[in-house]
Amino acid sequence: MLGTQIKDVILKPDAPSSLLLDKHADYIAAYGSKKDDYEYTLSEYLRMSGIYWGLTVMDLMGQLDRMNLQEIIDFIKACQHDCGGFSASIGHDPHLLYTLSAVQILCLYDSLHAIDVDKVVEYVKGLQQEDGSFAGDKWGEIDTRFSFCAVATLALLGKMEMINVDRAVEFVLSCMNFDGGFGCRPGSESHAGQIYCCTGFLSLTGQLHQLNADLLGWWLCERQLPSGGLNGRPEKLPDVCYSWWVLASLKIIGRIHWIDKSRLRQFILACQDEETGGFADRPGDMVDPFHTLFGVAGLSLLGEEQVKAVNPVLCMPEDVLQRIGLQPDLLS
């Protein structure tokens, strides 16, 4: 018989084992200041999300005041288009992905009044298709990620009733698979990122009872590898961002205790860069703000007391959602 080699990483004994909060805050604070950097410029197409990742992790670490509020609000306003949607950056086209990020940032700053909210709602509404799905923008790409972006944006704006929620739910449920998970479109393979979007979607629309939570929870807890890290699909390497998506999904369906929390914590901590600050996808790789947010947010869900409590559905600090009065459902 053949033995499968489990794809995994080995944590080095000298890997970081405590949370280096100050370094991470310095890393994020400095990240936006190197605007002439080649790599930074290359990632302009997702800038709005980049800002959301950076600000959210700063807020979770209690360091939001180190960021330049006015500059960010001005930037967001400049990114809203006539159609109501937001682009990742100036000169780019509007998209649901960046519309959600922009609204999330404005909620962190309690500044929704700075933009035309009704037009945002019109934009989101206009992207819903006959079958209930959402296109990411006017070019028609369909994905359950966009269903999540749409309802998350509207939930934050308190305007969920503006779309056809029943149809939207019907479409997301049509993407449910044999393993209880979800993919991008009907028939697509289950993937932790999409599962996060779809469980989050069902939470925001009050439809979590439609899940097969025991079956899905089993698939999700099987993502944990001997290193303690979680992968996003069977036979893939562990990754800090997938750790968040799987963990948040488990939290939403009330089954976070099905994984070994202390081993996961060890893995996430080992992905920190002691020199530069920040988290990488795996130990020894280059850090970035994306994995830094999901590293810190993951630790928060695992009960880390040095950072604020994070909401598993919207990946935002709980105190921000309390201020808005939004409490997405979780299964118990």
């Binding site: 002439d36 080649y38 410029t41 990488a280 280059m286 970035d288």
Partner: peptide, 30 residues
């Protein structure tokens, strides 16, 4: 950004890389 291994570099390599990136940036931005 996934699977990009961090490599240790010398100051000189770093400087060369910086120059190269600067050049690439100019072309890209243009």
């Amino acid at each position: 950004m996934h699977g990009r291994v961090k490599v240790k570099t010398t100051a000189q390599q770093e400087e060369e890389k910086r120059k190269e990136r600067e050049k690439k940036l100019k072309i890209y931005v243009a």
